[in-house]
Design a protein around this nucleic acid. Structure first.
Length: 589
RNA sequence: GCACCCAUAGCUCAAUUGGAUAGAGCAUCUGACUACGGAUCAGAAGGUUAAUGGUUCAACUCCAUUUGGGUGCACCA
């Protein structure tokens, strides 16, 4: 095992020691974590207390027995037993220097590839055809992309799939609008706005005029039955929308392995419904095909039941409407089946907002009954809403949803104003480029740094602030590192150096670098990129203190070489960490 | 009505298998060699984690009840 993964090495040894004392114990939960407070040491394990409790043993005695079997002397001082049974590990300075030495030679320092790589499908973004991408899409898009990047770096096989909304009842209305009210000139100028106008026009007409609603239904049926004209229009709408998607994803630096829209699964829908009926999972009710509870779950936890007057009542999931058409549950089940057959994934992560929790818990529960043999773990990676500064859903002043492209424009424009002030010596083109990186980075970081499940308040001033836990602060820390190397110029060398860690601030910085991989694993485990944000913010803080107190260019000899190498490693970790959040870096700002 | 989610410092947010004295940033106050880039750093102050009870050696975290907010609940996705 590589020396750069010191916490992993400790964990491995500790697990062996536990096995030596308790041969039948499951050591999966015997973990080593960074200490919350450096006074306890560098790493700690709390696992023995839990283990002792399980077995009704004395935790301190168990700790004594385990420590007797534990040899980590090549990396640590004597392992200390504290409190109720904490194990505290304190790294030897030589071990830290050795780890950095190894890391400096590696392509991905402080990251360990997964021992058992998993195949993970990440389903995110999911915009709709003929509609503008808006703020509602941003969290899914940014979270999903970050998770995919991190899982890939950790050595997993990742398949990203953009499940776009290219089918459904809205196309009936869109077709009526297209055929009767289309403005070709407007369409050429701004296709998305024109299609949105058509939809809104027909949609409001439907509310007052039964005839319009009926014609929308008929157009939809024709489309579903493969009518040539309607299919052609539908394809044109898709093509026009894809231009928009490509533009937005291009700006955000996001790529998908697949973009199988909902329509891709149309040929499979009938089979899904038939299979579920054949297996007795689905049945007819009021003309629709539904899945009811099979009673295998406790009533309180069963998503296919609801409680009323103290009694359980059915809360079925519809998989076919009474008019014979499929709905989104059908499509989701068909999608699931396709993914299972095609990729045999270990995990599928659905990155959508929290309002779909009931839907996904129903889908997951149906899936278990449909494919009881499947080992695939399904995760609904849900997130909260973006709120305006008034605490209500984020909208424009006039109450419309905010278009994603306008949001990105504004981020860059606002960043440009700041960059202009701070970098007066640079040409405008370069200032624009810096503003692009800073503006987009600010949006992404603001989205990723809170716990995904909490709603967060969107604030331009906070995300673009130059101090505090923001993208500009992290990017600034990176440019300070790069500035050192720019100044160094020709002198820069790639020759291996010996790390001499003496000053407290350089030791703290060095130790923090060791935890990069551990942090990425924690993100992957819970699908929470905010852990990485916190890590990078702390890294920037440790670097700032080091930079303040430990002269680099002004120092001499081996100390200078060591500090330069430490700066270089810090810069590499910072850059890679930001890249894992989908954030670019800039050399100057 | 039922279900899910949330409530942490003045504000915005953290808190890695239940772990050690609940942490940051902003704002406020104080300070730092006229700066290897000051878009910086150091310090102070700020808390009954909505309330009550329970489980535990240990609870922001788990359980129960209550209060206040958000969201969702058969033929939209």
């Amino acid at each position: 095992m590589k020396e750069t993964m010191l916490p992993k090495n400790l964990e491995h040894r500790l697990q062996q020691a536990v096995s030596a004392v308790l041969p039948d114990a499951n050591t999966d939960s015997v973990l080593v974590r960074p200490c919350p407070d450096p006074k306890f040491g560098d790493y700690q394990s709390n696992a023995l207390m839990a283990l002792a409790k399980e077995r009704k043993m004395n935790p301190r005695q168990l700790a004594i027995d385990v420590v007797a079997k534990l040899d980590v002397s090549e990396w640590c001082e004597k392992v200390e037993i504290a409190g109720a049974g904490f194990l505290n590990f304190r790294l030897k300075p030589g071990a830290i220097a050795g780890a950095l030495q190894e890391a400096a030679k590696m392509k991905d320092p402080f990251v360990q590839k997964a021992v058992k790589p998993r195949t993970v499908v990440v389903d995110f973004s999911g915009p709709n055809i003929a509609k503008p991408m808006h703020v509602g899409h941003i969290r899914s898009t940014i979270l999903g992309d970050s998770l995919a990047r991190i899982l890939r770096l950790l050595g997993h096989k990742v398949i990203t799939d953009n499940h776009i909304g290219d089918w459904g009842t809205q196309f009936g209305k869109l077709l009526v609008g297209w055929k009767n009210h289309l403005d070709r000139t407007a369409l050429e100028k701004d296709p998305i706005s024109e299609m949105e106008r058509l939809y809104k026009l027909v949609n409001s007409a439907c509310e007052t005029d039964e005839k319009v609603l009926e014609s929308a239904r008929q157009e939809l049926v024709k489309l579903q039955n493969g009518d040539g004209e309607n299919l052609a229009i539908w394809r044109e709408m898709i093509a026009l929308s894809e231009t928009q998607f490509a533009r937005v994803y291009g700006r955000l630096g996001i790529k998908f392995d697949h973009t199988f829209g909902e329509s891709f699964y149309n040929p499979r829908l009938k089979t899904v419904v038939q299979e579920l009926r054949d297996k007795g999972i689905a049945q007819e009710s009021e003309g629709a095909i539904c899945v009811f509870s099979d009673g295998s779950l406790p009533p309180q936890k069963d998503p296919l039941l609801k409680q009323e007057d103290g009694k359980s009542k059915p809360n079925p999931c519809l998989i076919q409407k009474s008019d014979g058409a499929a709905n989104y549950a059908t499509t989701d089940l068909a999608t699931l089946a396709y993914r299972l057959e095609t990729w045999q994934p270990d995990d599928i992560a659905y990155v959508t907002d929290g309002r779909q929790q009931l839907h996904f818990s129903q889908i997951f529960s149906i899936f278990k009954r449909w494919h009881p043999e499947a080992k695939t773990k399904l995760a609904h990676v849900w997130f909260g809403s973006i709120l305006g500064e008034d605490g209500k859903p984020f909208k424009t002043r006039s109450g419309d949803t905010i278009k994603l492209e306008d949001l990105l424009d504004e981020a860059q424009e606002r960043a440009f104003k700041v960059v202009q002030e701070k970098t007066t010596g640079l040409p405008e083109s370069q200032q624009r480029e810096i503003a692009r990186v800073v503006g987009l980075g600010a949006i992404k970081y603001a989205d990723l740094s809170p716990n995904r499940q909490s709603d967060y308040v969107f604030s331009w001033d906070k995300m673009l602030a130059l101090q505090g836990n923001t993208a500009p602060y992290l990017l600034y820390a990176y440019t300070r590192i790069r500035s050192i190397f720019r100044k160094l110029g020709e002198e820069a060398s790639t020759a291996p150096v010996n790390f001499l860690l003496a000053a407290p601030d350089e030791i703290t910085l060095a130790k923090h670098l060791l935890n990069f991989g551990l942090t990425l694993e924690a993100v992957a485990e819970d699908y929470r990129p905010n852990f990485l944000c916190t890590y990078l913010f702390e890294l920037a803080g440790h670097f700032a203190r080091f930079y303040e107190n430990c002269p680099v260019l002004k120092s001499e000899g081996p100390e200078r070489a060591s500090r330069l190498a430490l700066c270089d490693l810090t810069g590499r970790v910072m850059k890679q960490g930001l890249e894992m959040l989908g954030i670019e870096t800039t050399e100057q700002m």
